[in-house]
């Protein structure tokens, strides 16, 4: 059975193997499959400047095998939208203690039928609700927008779509709400809380209070 694990700086020593799989799959999916060639690494592990002690990973693991993942990062620190994609946020870059940036979302190819997506989307909402987060921001390929909306997410555009590596992409903010969590759970027939927090307290409180 697939579970979503919360991994931070504090418990990553339990997950070294899963995190290596995560970076390897990121390379396979973002570089080799989607063609974001700027991220290519000789060792086949995709690691960027935001894979640091502030990042939180929510990884879907089934019997030791990683089947999907995503990363959350404080928007008060320099983050991808503020540093790499500010031109996508014509309406302004949201930055606050209760806003996280949501990046490197993926599901492995053989699990792309919907349920693993719903599980990861539900995990994101559930984690953020528990942390008092109100919104996550993300850069996403446009064809994902209706999928988020059909999952029950309220999505606010931060600008018009623009081409990134030949794909129309948009910067957007997704509202965190109990209603969205319940909607996506219902859609996939998921019951109740599903996050696993090995060696973590119930709330992480690692969001920095000052802009770096």
């Amino acid at each position: 059975m697939t579970c979503v694990h919360v991994i931070t700086h504090a418990n990553r020593h339990f997950y070294e193997e899963s995190l290596e799989q995560f970076h390897r799959l990121r390379h396979q999916i973002f570089v080799e499959e989607r063609g974001w060639s700027g991220l290519r690494q000789p060792d086949g592990l995709e690691v960027d400047a935001y894979d640091n002690q502030h990042a939180v990973y929510l990884l879907a693991i089934d019997a030791g095998r990683l089947v999907g993942g995503q990363r959350l990062y404080p928007t008060l620190l320099p983050h991808m939208i503020s540093e790499v994609f500010p031109h996508l946020a014509q309406l302004g870059v949201p930055q606050a203690a209760d806003i996280l940036e949501w990046t490197r979302y993926f599901v492995v190819k053989e699990r792309r039928t919907g349920r693993t997506d719903c599980r990861l989307l539900a995990a994101m909402q559930e984690f953020c609700l528990g942390e008092g987060i109100t919104e996550v921001t993300a850069v996403v390929e446009m064809w994902w927008l209706p999928r988020w909306q059909q999952a029950g997410f309220k999505v606010r555009p931060l600008g018009l779509p623009q081409l990134i590596e030949g794909q129309p992409c948009i910067a957007a903010a997704v509202e965190i709400s109990q209603a969205s969590l319940e909607h996506v759970r219902k859609l996939a027939g998921l019951r109740g809380a599903s996050l696993i927090r090995n060696g973590l307290s119930s709330r992480i409180h690692q969001v920095p209070h000052v802009a770096a």
Partner: peptide, 9 residues
């Protein structure tokens, strides 16, 4: 504009 929904819609 094609739409490919989360449940195959």
């Amino acid at each position: 504009l094609p739409i490919h929904g989360i449940n195959g819609y």
